[in-house]
Design a protein around this nucleic acid. Structure first.
Lengths: 293, 293
DNA sequence: TACAACCATGAGTCAGACTCATGATCGCAG
DNA sequence: CTGCGATCATGAGTCTGACTCATGGTTGTA
Protein backbone atom coordinates (compact mmCIF):
# COMPACT_ATOMS: atom_id res chain seq x y z
CA UNK A 1 0.00 0.00 0.00
CA UNK A 2 2.85 2.36 0.81
CA UNK A 3 5.49 2.92 -1.84
CA UNK A 4 8.77 2.70 0.01
CA UNK A 5 10.69 4.09 -2.94
CA UNK A 6 9.34 7.56 -2.23
CA UNK A 7 11.91 9.86 -0.63
CA UNK A 8 9.71 12.68 0.50
CA UNK A 9 12.39 15.23 1.33
CA UNK A 10 14.30 14.43 -1.80
CA UNK A 11 11.25 14.92 -4.00
CA UNK A 12 10.40 18.21 -2.33
CA UNK A 13 13.92 19.51 -2.82
CA UNK A 14 13.82 18.29 -6.40
CA UNK A 15 10.52 20.04 -7.08
CA UNK A 16 11.80 23.27 -5.60
CA UNK A 17 15.08 23.11 -7.49
CA UNK A 18 13.36 22.27 -10.76
CA UNK A 19 10.87 25.04 -10.33
CA UNK A 20 13.59 27.64 -9.72
CA UNK A 21 16.20 25.90 -11.81
CA UNK A 22 18.61 27.02 -9.16
CA UNK A 23 19.62 25.26 -5.97
CA UNK A 24 20.35 28.45 -4.09
CA UNK A 25 16.98 30.00 -4.70
CA UNK A 26 15.26 26.69 -4.08
CA UNK A 27 17.00 26.58 -0.72
CA UNK A 28 15.73 30.05 0.17
CA UNK A 29 12.25 29.03 -0.85
CA UNK A 30 12.43 25.91 1.29
CA UNK A 31 13.96 27.83 4.14
CA UNK A 32 17.14 25.74 4.28
CA UNK A 33 20.71 26.10 3.13
CA UNK A 34 21.92 25.58 -0.42
CA UNK A 35 23.96 22.72 0.86
CA UNK A 36 20.87 20.95 2.11
CA UNK A 37 19.28 21.07 -1.31
CA UNK A 38 22.41 19.83 -2.99
CA UNK A 39 22.67 16.94 -0.55
CA UNK A 40 19.02 15.98 -0.90
CA UNK A 41 19.10 15.97 -4.65
CA UNK A 42 22.28 14.00 -4.82
CA UNK A 43 20.80 11.46 -2.45
CA UNK A 44 17.69 11.27 -4.59
CA UNK A 45 19.71 10.83 -7.74
CA UNK A 46 21.66 8.03 -6.14
CA UNK A 47 18.47 6.48 -4.85
CA UNK A 48 16.73 6.36 -8.22
CA UNK A 49 20.08 5.71 -9.88
CA UNK A 50 19.39 8.35 -12.49
CA UNK A 51 20.78 11.78 -13.18
CA UNK A 52 17.99 14.35 -12.85
CA UNK A 53 19.89 17.54 -13.60
CA UNK A 54 22.58 18.46 -16.06
CA UNK A 55 24.96 20.66 -14.12
CA UNK A 56 26.44 22.91 -16.75
CA UNK A 57 28.71 25.45 -15.17
CA UNK A 58 26.48 28.18 -13.84
CA UNK A 59 23.35 26.69 -15.29
CA UNK A 60 21.03 23.86 -14.41
CA UNK A 61 19.00 21.88 -16.90
CA UNK A 62 16.67 18.98 -16.33
CA UNK A 63 17.62 15.70 -17.91
CA UNK A 64 14.95 13.80 -19.81
CA UNK A 65 14.46 11.69 -16.71
CA UNK A 66 14.21 14.86 -14.68
CA UNK A 67 11.44 16.18 -16.91
CA UNK A 68 9.55 12.94 -16.67
CA UNK A 69 9.84 12.80 -12.90
CA UNK A 70 9.05 16.47 -12.42
CA UNK A 71 5.78 16.34 -14.28
CA UNK A 72 4.44 13.74 -11.86
CA UNK A 73 6.02 15.18 -8.76
CA UNK A 74 4.50 18.59 -9.39
CA UNK A 75 1.10 17.01 -9.81
CA UNK A 76 1.64 15.14 -6.57
CA UNK A 77 2.44 18.24 -4.56
CA UNK A 78 -0.39 20.20 -6.08
CA UNK A 79 -2.77 17.52 -4.84
CA UNK A 80 -1.39 17.97 -1.35
CA UNK A 81 -1.97 21.69 -1.65
CA UNK A 82 -5.49 21.06 -2.85
CA UNK A 83 -6.16 18.78 0.06
CA UNK A 84 -5.04 21.41 2.52
CA UNK A 85 -7.05 24.07 0.70
CA UNK A 86 -10.07 21.82 1.00
CA UNK A 87 -9.56 21.52 4.74
CA UNK A 88 -9.48 25.28 5.04
CA UNK A 89 -12.60 25.58 2.92
CA UNK A 90 -14.33 23.21 5.32
CA UNK A 91 -13.69 25.57 8.19
CA UNK A 92 -14.18 29.02 6.68
CA UNK A 93 -17.66 29.66 5.40
CA UNK A 94 -18.27 30.43 1.75
CA UNK A 95 -20.68 29.81 -1.08
CA UNK A 96 -20.95 27.88 -4.32
CA UNK A 97 -23.19 29.33 -7.00
CA UNK A 98 -25.08 26.72 -8.98
CA UNK A 99 -27.39 27.20 -11.95
CA UNK A 100 -29.97 24.40 -12.12
CA UNK A 101 -33.02 23.63 -14.16
CA UNK A 102 -36.06 24.01 -11.91
CA UNK A 103 -37.34 20.48 -12.24
CA UNK A 104 -33.97 18.90 -11.50
CA UNK A 105 -33.47 21.25 -8.58
CA UNK A 106 -36.75 20.27 -7.02
CA UNK A 107 -36.74 16.56 -7.60
CA UNK A 108 -33.12 15.49 -7.57
CA UNK A 109 -30.99 18.14 -5.96
CA UNK A 110 -33.22 19.38 -3.14
CA UNK A 111 -33.72 15.95 -1.53
CA UNK A 112 -29.97 15.50 -1.42
CA UNK A 113 -29.05 18.91 -0.09
CA UNK A 114 -29.64 17.84 3.48
CA UNK A 115 -26.75 15.42 3.09
CA UNK A 116 -24.55 18.10 1.54
CA UNK A 117 -25.12 20.70 4.22
CA UNK A 118 -24.65 18.02 6.84
CA UNK A 119 -21.30 17.03 5.37
CA UNK A 120 -20.15 20.56 4.61
CA UNK A 121 -21.90 22.86 7.06
CA UNK A 122 -19.63 25.79 6.20
CA UNK A 123 -20.42 25.70 2.50
CA UNK A 124 -23.52 27.57 1.42
CA UNK A 125 -25.14 26.52 -1.81
CA UNK A 126 -26.67 29.36 -3.76
CA UNK A 127 -28.80 27.74 -6.32
CA UNK A 128 -30.48 29.63 -9.05
CA UNK A 129 -33.15 28.36 -11.36
CA UNK A 130 -32.04 28.53 -14.95
CA UNK A 131 -33.34 26.83 -18.05
CA UNK A 132 -30.64 28.10 -20.36
CA UNK A 133 -27.09 27.02 -20.99
CA UNK A 134 -24.79 28.91 -18.65
CA UNK A 135 -21.95 30.79 -20.29
CA UNK A 136 -19.21 30.71 -17.70
CA UNK A 137 -17.34 33.48 -19.45
CA UNK A 138 -20.02 35.96 -18.47
CA UNK A 139 -21.90 34.24 -15.64
CA UNK A 140 -20.71 34.24 -12.06
CA UNK A 141 -21.99 30.70 -11.61
CA UNK A 142 -19.44 28.18 -10.40
CA UNK A 143 -21.20 25.15 -11.87
CA UNK A 144 -24.35 24.49 -13.81
CA UNK A 145 -26.72 21.58 -14.25
CA UNK A 146 -28.42 21.64 -17.60
CA UNK A 147 -30.50 19.43 -19.81
CA UNK A 148 -28.75 18.57 -23.06
CA UNK A 149 -29.63 16.27 -25.90
CA UNK A 150 -26.01 15.19 -26.26
CA UNK A 151 -22.92 15.72 -24.14
CA UNK A 152 -22.06 19.37 -24.57
CA UNK A 153 -18.71 19.78 -26.36
CA UNK A 154 -15.97 22.24 -25.37
CA UNK A 155 -16.68 22.10 -21.65
CA UNK A 156 -16.23 19.61 -18.87
CA UNK A 157 -19.48 17.79 -18.31
CA UNK A 158 -20.80 14.66 -16.66
CA UNK A 159 -24.12 12.97 -17.21
CA UNK A 160 -25.88 12.94 -13.84
CA UNK A 161 -29.23 11.49 -14.88
CA UNK A 162 -30.25 10.44 -18.37
CA UNK A 163 -33.66 11.62 -19.48
CA UNK A 164 -36.41 9.32 -20.74
CA UNK A 165 -39.27 11.42 -22.03
CA UNK A 166 -42.89 10.39 -22.25
CA UNK A 167 -46.14 12.34 -22.22
CA UNK A 168 -47.70 12.74 -18.81
CA UNK A 169 -51.02 14.20 -17.86
CA UNK A 170 -53.79 14.28 -15.30
CA UNK A 171 -55.67 10.95 -15.02
CA UNK A 172 -58.79 12.95 -15.93
CA UNK A 173 -57.64 13.13 -19.53
CA UNK A 174 -57.81 9.35 -19.89
CA UNK A 175 -61.58 9.56 -19.91
CA UNK A 176 -63.69 12.59 -20.86
CA UNK A 177 -64.54 14.04 -24.25
CA UNK A 178 -61.31 13.05 -25.98
CA UNK A 179 -59.84 10.06 -24.12
CA UNK A 180 -56.15 9.31 -24.67
CA UNK A 181 -55.86 5.77 -26.01
CA UNK A 182 -53.31 5.99 -28.81
CA UNK A 183 -50.68 8.69 -29.40
CA UNK A 184 -52.66 10.31 -32.20
CA UNK A 185 -55.40 11.12 -29.69
CA UNK A 186 -53.08 13.84 -28.49
CA UNK A 187 -54.23 15.99 -31.39
CA UNK A 188 -57.33 17.01 -29.46
CA UNK A 189 -55.41 18.23 -26.43
CA UNK A 190 -53.27 21.12 -25.36
CA UNK A 191 -49.54 20.48 -25.39
CA UNK A 192 -47.29 21.89 -22.71
CA UNK A 193 -43.80 22.46 -23.99
CA UNK A 194 -40.50 24.10 -23.29
CA UNK A 195 -39.43 26.95 -25.56
CA UNK A 196 -39.58 25.36 -29.04
CA UNK A 197 -41.46 22.10 -29.21
CA UNK A 198 -38.67 20.06 -30.83
CA UNK A 199 -38.65 17.42 -28.13
CA UNK A 200 -42.33 16.81 -28.71
CA UNK A 201 -41.67 16.43 -32.45
CA UNK A 202 -39.03 13.83 -31.67
CA UNK A 203 -41.39 11.95 -29.43
CA UNK A 204 -44.08 12.03 -32.14
CA UNK A 205 -41.62 10.43 -34.51
CA UNK A 206 -40.74 7.67 -32.09
CA UNK A 207 -44.42 7.15 -31.41
CA UNK A 208 -45.08 6.64 -35.10
CA UNK A 209 -47.09 9.79 -35.84
CA UNK A 210 -44.52 12.31 -37.07
CA UNK A 211 -47.07 14.61 -38.71
CA UNK A 212 -49.28 15.10 -35.70
CA UNK A 213 -50.18 18.75 -35.06
CA UNK A 214 -52.11 19.24 -31.87
CA UNK A 215 -54.87 21.77 -31.41
CA UNK A 216 -53.09 24.04 -29.01
CA UNK A 217 -49.81 24.51 -27.25
CA UNK A 218 -48.60 26.44 -24.24
CA UNK A 219 -44.93 27.25 -23.81
CA UNK A 220 -43.73 27.16 -20.20
CA UNK A 221 -40.01 27.08 -19.55
CA UNK A 222 -40.20 26.16 -15.91
CA UNK A 223 -40.62 22.40 -15.67
CA UNK A 224 -42.22 22.55 -12.25
CA UNK A 225 -44.93 24.89 -13.46
CA UNK A 226 -45.46 22.71 -16.51
CA UNK A 227 -45.92 19.69 -14.29
CA UNK A 228 -48.33 21.59 -12.07
CA UNK A 229 -50.30 22.64 -15.13
CA UNK A 230 -50.44 19.00 -16.20
CA UNK A 231 -51.68 17.96 -12.75
CA UNK A 232 -54.38 20.62 -13.05
CA UNK A 233 -55.50 19.01 -16.28
CA UNK A 234 -54.50 22.00 -18.38
CA UNK A 235 -52.64 19.95 -20.93
CA UNK A 236 -50.16 17.19 -21.64
CA UNK A 237 -46.56 17.67 -20.68
CA UNK A 238 -43.59 15.81 -22.08
CA UNK A 239 -41.58 15.09 -18.97
CA UNK A 240 -38.58 13.02 -18.08
CA UNK A 241 -39.80 10.07 -16.05
CA UNK A 242 -36.80 10.05 -13.70
CA UNK A 243 -38.04 13.31 -12.18
CA UNK A 244 -41.70 12.33 -12.02
CA UNK A 245 -41.69 9.23 -9.85
CA UNK A 246 -43.56 10.97 -7.01
CA UNK A 247 -46.36 12.30 -9.16
CA UNK A 248 -46.74 9.04 -11.06
CA UNK A 249 -46.68 6.91 -7.91
CA UNK A 250 -49.29 9.04 -6.17
CA UNK A 251 -51.56 8.99 -9.22
CA UNK A 252 -51.61 12.76 -9.61
CA UNK A 253 -50.14 12.17 -13.04
CA UNK A 254 -50.31 9.22 -15.38
CA UNK A 255 -48.18 8.13 -18.29
CA UNK A 256 -50.77 7.33 -20.97
CA UNK A 257 -48.39 5.70 -23.49
CA UNK A 258 -45.48 3.33 -23.22
CA UNK A 259 -43.48 5.02 -25.94
CA UNK A 260 -40.34 6.57 -24.50
CA UNK A 261 -37.94 9.00 -26.10
CA UNK A 262 -34.40 8.66 -24.85
CA UNK A 263 -33.23 12.22 -25.15
CA UNK A 264 -29.98 13.18 -23.50
CA UNK A 265 -30.05 13.96 -19.85
CA UNK A 266 -29.14 16.33 -17.08
CA UNK A 267 -25.49 17.25 -17.28
CA UNK A 268 -23.27 18.78 -14.68
CA UNK A 269 -20.98 21.26 -16.42
CA UNK A 270 -18.37 23.63 -15.11
CA UNK A 271 -15.41 25.69 -16.30
CA UNK A 272 -11.89 24.37 -15.81
CA UNK A 273 -11.20 26.87 -13.06
CA UNK A 274 -13.91 25.34 -10.87
CA UNK A 275 -11.57 22.49 -10.05
CA UNK A 276 -8.98 24.90 -8.72
CA UNK A 277 -11.37 26.39 -6.20
CA UNK A 278 -11.91 24.26 -3.10
CA UNK A 279 -15.62 24.82 -2.62
CA UNK A 280 -16.75 24.27 -6.21
CA UNK A 281 -14.45 21.26 -6.32
CA UNK A 282 -15.97 19.78 -3.18
CA UNK A 283 -19.47 20.35 -4.54
CA UNK A 284 -18.61 18.73 -7.87
CA UNK A 285 -17.07 15.72 -6.19
CA UNK A 286 -20.07 15.36 -3.93
CA UNK A 287 -22.47 15.61 -6.89
CA UNK A 288 -20.62 12.94 -8.81
CA UNK A 289 -20.64 10.66 -5.81
CA UNK A 290 -24.38 11.23 -5.35
CA UNK A 291 -24.93 10.38 -9.00
CA UNK A 292 -22.91 7.20 -8.58
CA UNK A 293 -20.06 8.31 -10.83
CA UNK B 1 6.22 28.06 -5.15
CA UNK B 2 6.60 25.67 -2.24
CA UNK B 3 3.60 25.11 -0.01
CA UNK B 4 4.97 25.28 3.51
CA UNK B 5 1.77 23.92 5.00
CA UNK B 6 2.64 20.44 3.72
CA UNK B 7 3.84 18.10 6.46
CA UNK B 8 5.26 15.29 4.41
CA UNK B 9 5.69 12.69 7.14
CA UNK B 10 2.33 13.51 8.60
CA UNK B 11 0.58 13.08 5.29
CA UNK B 12 2.32 9.79 4.65
CA UNK B 13 1.33 8.45 8.05
CA UNK B 14 -2.20 9.70 7.48
CA UNK B 15 -2.43 8.02 4.10
CA UNK B 16 -1.17 4.74 5.52
CA UNK B 17 -3.49 4.88 8.51
CA UNK B 18 -6.49 5.77 6.38
CA UNK B 19 -5.74 3.06 3.93
CA UNK B 20 -5.52 0.40 6.65
CA UNK B 21 -7.96 2.14 8.98
CA UNK B 22 -5.67 0.95 11.70
CA UNK B 23 -2.62 2.67 13.17
CA UNK B 24 -0.90 -0.56 14.11
CA UNK B 25 -1.05 -2.05 10.65
CA UNK B 26 -0.17 1.28 9.08
CA UNK B 27 2.92 1.30 11.27
CA UNK B 28 3.93 -2.15 10.09
CA UNK B 29 3.41 -1.06 6.51
CA UNK B 30 5.54 2.02 7.04
CA UNK B 31 8.15 0.04 8.90
CA UNK B 32 7.86 2.10 12.09
CA UNK B 33 6.24 1.69 15.47
CA UNK B 34 2.56 2.21 16.19
CA UNK B 35 3.57 5.04 18.44
CA UNK B 36 5.26 6.87 15.58
CA UNK B 37 2.09 6.80 13.52
CA UNK B 38 0.01 8.01 16.42
CA UNK B 39 2.41 10.89 17.05
CA UNK B 40 2.56 11.89 13.40
CA UNK B 41 -1.16 11.94 12.97
CA UNK B 42 -1.75 13.90 16.12
CA UNK B 43 0.82 16.42 15.01
CA UNK B 44 -0.87 16.67 11.63
CA UNK B 45 -4.27 17.13 13.21
CA UNK B 46 -2.91 19.89 15.40
CA UNK B 47 -1.19 21.46 12.43
CA UNK B 48 -4.29 21.64 10.23
CA UNK B 49 -6.38 22.28 13.34
CA UNK B 50 -8.90 19.66 12.26
CA UNK B 51 -9.80 16.22 13.52
CA UNK B 52 -9.10 13.68 10.78
CA UNK B 53 -10.13 10.45 12.50
CA UNK B 54 -12.94 9.55 14.82
CA UNK B 55 -11.35 7.31 17.43
CA UNK B 56 -14.17 5.10 18.53
CA UNK B 57 -12.93 2.52 20.96
CA UNK B 58 -11.36 -0.20 18.89
CA UNK B 59 -12.37 1.31 15.60
CA UNK B 60 -11.17 4.16 13.45
CA UNK B 61 -13.33 6.18 11.12
CA UNK B 62 -12.42 9.10 8.94
CA UNK B 63 -14.10 12.38 9.70
CA UNK B 64 -15.61 14.32 6.82
CA UNK B 65 -12.45 16.41 6.77
CA UNK B 66 -10.43 13.21 6.78
CA UNK B 67 -12.27 11.94 3.72
CA UNK B 68 -11.76 15.20 1.91
CA UNK B 69 -8.07 15.30 2.70
CA UNK B 70 -7.51 11.64 1.95
CA UNK B 71 -8.90 11.81 -1.54
CA UNK B 72 -6.32 14.40 -2.51
CA UNK B 73 -3.46 12.92 -0.53
CA UNK B 74 -3.90 9.53 -2.16
CA UNK B 75 -3.83 11.14 -5.58
CA UNK B 76 -0.69 12.97 -4.56
CA UNK B 77 1.17 9.85 -3.54
CA UNK B 78 0.03 7.93 -6.57
CA UNK B 79 1.61 10.61 -8.72
CA UNK B 80 4.89 10.11 -6.88
CA UNK B 81 4.64 6.40 -7.53
CA UNK B 82 3.94 7.06 -11.18
CA UNK B 83 6.92 9.32 -11.41
CA UNK B 84 9.19 6.66 -9.98
CA UNK B 85 7.64 4.04 -12.25
CA UNK B 86 8.38 6.31 -15.16
CA UNK B 87 12.02 6.57 -14.16
CA UNK B 88 12.27 2.81 -14.06
CA UNK B 89 10.61 2.55 -17.44
CA UNK B 90 13.23 4.91 -18.82
CA UNK B 91 15.99 2.54 -17.80
CA UNK B 92 14.56 -0.91 -18.51
CA UNK B 93 13.75 -1.54 -22.14
CA UNK B 94 10.21 -2.30 -23.22
CA UNK B 95 7.74 -1.65 -25.98
CA UNK B 96 4.58 0.28 -26.66
CA UNK B 97 2.20 -1.16 -29.24
CA UNK B 98 0.50 1.47 -31.36
CA UNK B 99 -2.13 1.01 -34.04
CA UNK B 100 -1.96 3.82 -36.60
CA UNK B 101 -3.59 4.61 -39.89
CA UNK B 102 -0.95 4.24 -42.61
CA UNK B 103 -1.10 7.79 -43.89
CA UNK B 104 -0.82 9.32 -40.45
CA UNK B 105 2.00 6.98 -39.58
CA UNK B 106 3.99 7.98 -42.63
CA UNK B 107 3.39 11.70 -42.68
CA UNK B 108 2.96 12.75 -39.07
CA UNK B 109 4.28 10.08 -36.77
CA UNK B 110 7.35 8.86 -38.61
CA UNK B 111 9.00 12.29 -38.89
CA UNK B 112 8.62 12.74 -35.13
CA UNK B 113 9.82 9.32 -34.09
CA UNK B 114 13.43 10.39 -34.17
CA UNK B 115 12.68 12.77 -31.35
CA UNK B 116 10.86 10.09 -29.40
CA UNK B 117 13.58 7.50 -29.63
CA UNK B 118 16.11 10.15 -28.80
CA UNK B 119 14.22 11.12 -25.67
CA UNK B 120 13.32 7.59 -24.65
CA UNK B 121 15.98 5.30 -26.07
CA UNK B 122 14.82 2.36 -23.95
CA UNK B 123 11.25 2.46 -25.23
CA UNK B 124 10.60 0.60 -28.44
CA UNK B 125 7.62 1.68 -30.48
CA UNK B 126 5.88 -1.15 -32.25
CA UNK B 127 3.65 0.49 -34.69
CA UNK B 128 1.15 -1.40 -36.73
CA UNK B 129 -0.79 -0.11 -39.66
CA UNK B 130 -4.48 -0.31 -39.03
CA UNK B 131 -7.39 1.39 -40.74
CA UNK B 132 -10.05 0.10 -38.37
CA UNK B 133 -11.13 1.16 -34.92
CA UNK B 134 -9.11 -0.73 -32.35
CA UNK B 135 -11.12 -2.62 -29.76
CA UNK B 136 -8.90 -2.56 -26.71
CA UNK B 137 -10.89 -5.33 -25.08
CA UNK B 138 -9.55 -7.81 -27.63
CA UNK B 139 -6.51 -6.08 -29.09
CA UNK B 140 -3.11 -6.06 -27.45
CA UNK B 141 -2.51 -2.52 -28.66
CA UNK B 142 -1.66 0.00 -25.95
CA UNK B 143 -2.87 3.02 -27.87
CA UNK B 144 -4.38 3.69 -31.25
CA UNK B 145 -4.50 6.61 -33.64
CA UNK B 146 -7.60 6.54 -35.78
CA UNK B 147 -9.50 8.77 -38.12
CA UNK B 148 -12.96 9.61 -36.81
CA UNK B 149 -15.67 11.92 -38.05
CA UNK B 150 -16.51 12.96 -34.49
CA UNK B 151 -14.82 12.44 -31.16
CA UNK B 152 -15.34 8.77 -30.37
CA UNK B 153 -17.56 8.34 -27.29
CA UNK B 154 -16.94 5.89 -24.44
CA UNK B 155 -13.18 6.08 -24.64
CA UNK B 156 -10.48 8.53 -23.84
CA UNK B 157 -9.49 10.37 -26.98
CA UNK B 158 -7.68 13.49 -28.07
CA UNK B 159 -7.79 15.18 -31.43
CA UNK B 160 -4.22 15.24 -32.72
CA UNK B 161 -4.82 16.70 -36.17
CA UNK B 162 -8.14 17.75 -37.64
CA UNK B 163 -8.80 16.58 -41.18
CA UNK B 164 -9.67 18.91 -44.04
CA UNK B 165 -10.56 16.83 -47.06
CA UNK B 166 -10.29 17.87 -50.65
CA UNK B 167 -9.83 15.94 -53.87
CA UNK B 168 -6.24 15.56 -54.96
CA UNK B 169 -4.85 14.12 -58.17
CA UNK B 170 -1.94 14.09 -60.53
CA UNK B 171 -1.43 17.39 -62.38
CA UNK B 172 -1.91 15.41 -65.61
CA UNK B 173 -5.63 15.22 -64.91
CA UNK B 174 -5.96 19.00 -65.13
CA UNK B 175 -5.47 18.79 -68.83
CA UNK B 176 -6.12 15.78 -71.07
CA UNK B 177 -9.36 14.33 -72.38
CA UNK B 178 -11.52 15.32 -69.40
CA UNK B 179 -9.88 18.30 -67.70
CA UNK B 180 -10.93 19.04 -64.13
CA UNK B 181 -12.30 22.54 -63.97
CA UNK B 182 -15.43 22.32 -61.86
CA UNK B 183 -16.35 19.61 -59.32
CA UNK B 184 -18.86 18.00 -61.66
CA UNK B 185 -15.99 17.20 -64.05
CA UNK B 186 -15.10 14.47 -61.60
CA UNK B 187 -17.83 12.34 -63.13
CA UNK B 188 -15.50 11.32 -65.96
CA UNK B 189 -12.74 10.11 -63.67
CA UNK B 190 -11.95 7.21 -61.42
CA UNK B 191 -12.51 7.82 -57.73
CA UNK B 192 -10.13 6.40 -55.15
CA UNK B 193 -11.90 5.82 -51.86
CA UNK B 194 -11.63 4.16 -48.50
CA UNK B 195 -14.03 1.31 -47.75
CA UNK B 196 -17.45 2.90 -48.36
CA UNK B 197 -17.37 6.16 -50.24
CA UNK B 198 -19.35 8.18 -47.69
CA UNK B 199 -16.68 10.82 -47.28
CA UNK B 200 -16.75 11.43 -51.00
CA UNK B 201 -20.55 11.82 -50.85
CA UNK B 202 -20.14 14.40 -48.12
CA UNK B 203 -17.62 16.31 -50.16
CA UNK B 204 -19.94 16.22 -53.20
CA UNK B 205 -22.61 17.80 -51.06
CA UNK B 206 -20.34 20.57 -49.84
CA UNK B 207 -19.17 21.11 -53.40
CA UNK B 208 -22.75 21.58 -54.51
CA UNK B 209 -23.18 18.47 -56.62
CA UNK B 210 -24.74 15.94 -54.26
CA UNK B 211 -26.00 13.63 -57.01
CA UNK B 212 -22.75 13.18 -58.82
CA UNK B 213 -21.99 9.55 -59.63
CA UNK B 214 -18.55 9.06 -61.11
CA UNK B 215 -17.74 6.58 -63.81
CA UNK B 216 -15.60 4.28 -61.75
CA UNK B 217 -14.29 3.79 -58.24
CA UNK B 218 -11.48 1.86 -56.66
CA UNK B 219 -11.55 1.03 -52.97
CA UNK B 220 -8.14 1.13 -51.29
CA UNK B 221 -7.98 1.19 -47.53
CA UNK B 222 -4.34 2.11 -47.23
CA UNK B 223 -4.07 5.85 -47.63
CA UNK B 224 -0.45 5.72 -48.74
CA UNK B 225 -1.29 3.40 -51.59
CA UNK B 226 -4.25 5.58 -52.51
CA UNK B 227 -1.98 8.61 -52.67
CA UNK B 228 0.55 6.72 -54.76
CA UNK B 229 -2.24 5.69 -57.12
CA UNK B 230 -3.27 9.31 -57.39
CA UNK B 231 0.30 10.36 -58.13
CA UNK B 232 0.39 7.73 -60.88
CA UNK B 233 -2.68 9.34 -62.39
CA UNK B 234 -4.88 6.36 -61.71
CA UNK B 235 -7.67 8.39 -60.19
CA UNK B 236 -8.71 11.14 -57.84
CA UNK B 237 -8.23 10.64 -54.13
CA UNK B 238 -10.03 12.47 -51.36
CA UNK B 239 -7.22 13.17 -48.97
CA UNK B 240 -6.75 15.23 -45.84
CA UNK B 241 -4.57 18.17 -46.77
CA UNK B 242 -2.65 18.18 -43.50
CA UNK B 243 -0.96 14.95 -44.53
CA UNK B 244 -0.33 15.94 -48.15
CA UNK B 245 1.82 19.03 -47.83
CA UNK B 246 4.89 17.32 -49.30
CA UNK B 247 3.13 16.01 -52.38
CA UNK B 248 1.30 19.26 -53.00
CA UNK B 249 4.42 21.39 -52.49
CA UNK B 250 6.49 19.29 -54.87
CA UNK B 251 3.78 19.34 -57.49
CA UNK B 252 3.41 15.58 -57.63
CA UNK B 253 -0.19 16.16 -56.65
CA UNK B 254 -2.50 19.09 -57.11
CA UNK B 255 -5.68 20.17 -55.38
CA UNK B 256 -8.00 20.98 -58.30
CA UNK B 257 -10.81 22.61 -56.26
CA UNK B 258 -10.92 24.95 -53.30
CA UNK B 259 -13.88 23.24 -51.71
CA UNK B 260 -12.87 21.67 -48.43
CA UNK B 261 -14.78 19.22 -46.28
CA UNK B 262 -14.02 19.55 -42.58
CA UNK B 263 -14.46 16.00 -41.49
CA UNK B 264 -13.27 15.04 -38.04
CA UNK B 265 -9.64 14.23 -37.63
CA UNK B 266 -7.00 11.87 -36.40
CA UNK B 267 -7.68 10.93 -32.81
CA UNK B 268 -5.40 9.39 -30.27
CA UNK B 269 -7.42 6.90 -28.25
CA UNK B 270 -6.48 4.52 -25.49
CA UNK B 271 -8.02 2.45 -22.72
CA UNK B 272 -8.01 3.77 -19.17
CA UNK B 273 -5.38 1.25 -18.15
CA UNK B 274 -2.85 2.80 -20.53
CA UNK B 275 -2.35 5.66 -18.10
CA UNK B 276 -1.36 3.22 -15.38
CA UNK B 277 1.44 1.74 -17.42
CA UNK B 278 4.56 3.86 -17.54
CA UNK B 279 5.54 3.32 -21.14
CA UNK B 280 2.14 3.89 -22.73
CA UNK B 281 1.72 6.89 -20.46
CA UNK B 282 5.03 8.37 -21.55
CA UNK B 283 4.15 7.80 -25.19
CA UNK B 284 0.75 9.43 -24.78
CA UNK B 285 2.21 12.44 -23.01
CA UNK B 286 4.84 12.80 -25.69
CA UNK B 287 2.23 12.56 -28.46
CA UNK B 288 0.07 15.23 -26.86
CA UNK B 289 3.05 17.51 -26.47
CA UNK B 290 4.00 16.97 -30.12
CA UNK B 291 0.45 17.81 -31.14
CA UNK B 292 0.60 20.96 -29.07
CA UNK B 293 -2.02 19.87 -26.53
C1' DT C 1 -13.29 -11.37 34.48
C1' DA C 2 -9.45 -11.80 31.99
C1' DC C 3 -7.70 -11.04 27.65
C1' DA C 4 -6.76 -9.12 23.34
C1' DA C 5 -6.80 -5.39 20.25
C1' DC C 6 -6.64 -0.99 19.92
C1' DC C 7 -4.84 4.07 20.41
C1' DA C 8 -2.50 7.66 23.62
C1' DT C 9 1.27 9.46 26.16
C1' DG C 10 5.77 11.12 27.83
C1' DA C 11 10.51 10.57 28.17
C1' DG C 12 14.45 9.40 25.92
C1' DT C 13 17.15 8.02 21.67
C1' DC C 14 19.00 8.40 17.27
C1' DA C 15 19.13 8.77 12.28
C1' DG C 16 19.15 11.69 8.85
C1' DA C 17 18.34 16.32 7.54
C1' DC C 18 20.69 20.35 7.95
C1' DT C 19 24.60 23.79 8.66
C1' DC C 20 29.09 25.49 8.14
C1' DA C 21 33.16 26.30 5.95
C1' DT C 22 35.41 25.59 2.08
C1' DG C 23 36.57 24.04 -2.59
C1' DA C 24 35.89 23.92 -7.54
C1' DT C 25 34.24 25.68 -11.83
C1' DC C 26 33.32 29.00 -15.12
C1' DG C 27 31.11 33.23 -17.19
C1' DC C 28 31.95 37.93 -17.40
C1' DA C 29 33.50 42.75 -16.68
C1' DG C 30 37.26 45.60 -16.92
C1' DC D 1 43.82 37.53 -18.91
C1' DT D 2 42.76 38.43 -14.25
C1' DG D 3 39.81 38.79 -10.52
C1' DC D 4 35.11 38.66 -9.04
C1' DG D 5 30.71 36.76 -8.45
C1' DA D 6 27.45 33.23 -9.02
C1' DT D 7 26.89 28.40 -8.66
C1' DC D 8 27.06 23.69 -7.17
C1' DA D 9 29.88 20.05 -4.48
C1' DT D 10 31.88 18.14 -0.44
C1' DG D 11 32.89 16.42 4.23
C1' DA D 12 32.63 16.91 8.96
C1' DG D 13 29.91 18.13 12.62
C1' DT D 14 25.34 19.57 14.76
C1' DC D 15 20.78 19.22 16.06
C1' DT D 16 16.01 18.65 15.36
C1' DG D 17 12.15 16.08 15.01
C1' DA D 18 10.93 11.48 13.84
C1' DC D 19 11.03 7.42 16.13
C1' DT D 20 11.20 3.86 20.02
C1' DC D 21 10.09 2.09 24.40
C1' DA D 22 7.36 1.22 28.09
C1' DT D 23 3.20 1.87 29.81
C1' DG D 24 -1.59 3.34 30.44
C1' DG D 25 -6.46 3.53 29.12
C1' DT D 26 -10.53 1.83 26.90
C1' DT D 27 -13.65 -1.52 25.30
C1' DG D 28 -15.28 -5.57 22.75
C1' DT D 29 -15.23 -10.46 23.42
C1' DA D 30 -14.72 -15.21 24.99
Amino acid sequence: MIDHRIRLHGLRAFAAAACHMNFTRAAEDLGVSQSAVSHQIQQLERHVDTQLFHRRNRKLALTEAGHVLLSEVQKGFSHFTRGLDDLEALKASGAVVVDVTPRFALKWLAPRLRDFSHRFPAITLKYRQSTKTTDFATSDADVSIEWHLVEPPDRTSHLLVSARFSPICSPDLLSGAHPLRVPSDIRNHTLLYERDGTTWSKWFEVAGCPDLTPAEGVAIDDGNIRVQAAINGQGIDLGSLELLTDELASGRLVQPFDTILDAGGYYLTYPAKALDQPRPRLFIQWLLREAGL
